[in-house]
């Protein structure tokens, strides 16, 4: 994902994932070799703890194997499909980690905005960034924060000291505007 020299050919990955759907374990093994460092990076971002991230990665690839038959190459690329699945697993783990912790401890997480700022260089040419700029400031901020933090509305509201209704409203209105701008 991040660097061109480690970017496997999307078509090859699609084919491998489809072969997994047909029960081909050699394809699965190959797919793991080619994609696991990318998915591990995604999961590590959300989970933080390495040992827990390893468990999440195992859950993710287990699910990838079991769900591979539902992958539709005409709608999605294998890497996006897999990374999305892994991200959801990681988000669930992150939320479970912090469910019973006082909010203070959440401050130890790197602020999602600083993560997002690192990507400034990549933003300009992307449609989602262009559309995001058409939203109000708070909407922009919290859609990005929601993505990079992976929290639920309630957690986002508590973490950023914003009323739950307001947080929901910003993000939902923002998503609907974004949808219109992206032509979805």
């Amino acid at each position: 994902m991040a660097s061109p020299e480690t970017n496997p050919e999307p078509v090859a990955l699609n084919v491998l994932l489809q072969a997994c759907g047909q029960g081909n374990r050699l394809a699965f093994e190959t797919l793991y070799r080619v994609t696991s460092s990318r998915l591990f990076g995604v999961c590590l971002h959300y989970v933080g703890d390495r040992a827990e991230t390893e468990e999440v990665l195992q859950e993710a690839y287990t699910a990838i194997w079991l769900k591979a038959g539902t992958f539709d190459a005409t709608r999605s690329s294998a890497l996006t499909w897999m990374a999305t699945l892994a991200r959801h697993k990681a988000i669930d783990r992150r939320r479970a980690q912090h469910r019973h912790e006082p909010l203070d401890s959440l401050a130890e997480w790197p602020a999602a905005q600083s993560v997002a700022e690192d990507f400034e260089a990549y933003r300009q040419r992307r449609q989602i960034e262009l559309c995001l700029k058409t939203l109000g400031k708070d909407q922009q901020t919290y859609i990005r924060v929601a993505f990079f933090e992976g929290y639920s509305y309630a957690e986002l509201a508590a973490r950023h000291s914003i009323a739950l209704g307001t947080m929901k409203s910003w993000i939902r209105r923002g998503l609907l505007q974004l949808r219109a701008c992206l032509g979805l």
Binding site: A2, S36, F40, G41, T53, E54, L57, T84, F147
Partner: peptide, 28 residues
């Protein structure tokens, strides 16, 4: 959904690539 995921994948793609340890594959 596929379209949303394609757009958001632009963000996912920027996470660093980190090699998992070998025992993860064994666990799978």
């Amino acid at each position: 959904l596929a379209a949303w995921q394609r757009h958001f994948a632009d963000w996912l793609n920027e996470f660093p690539v980190v090699e998992p340890p070998a025992h993860v594959w064994q666990g799978i």
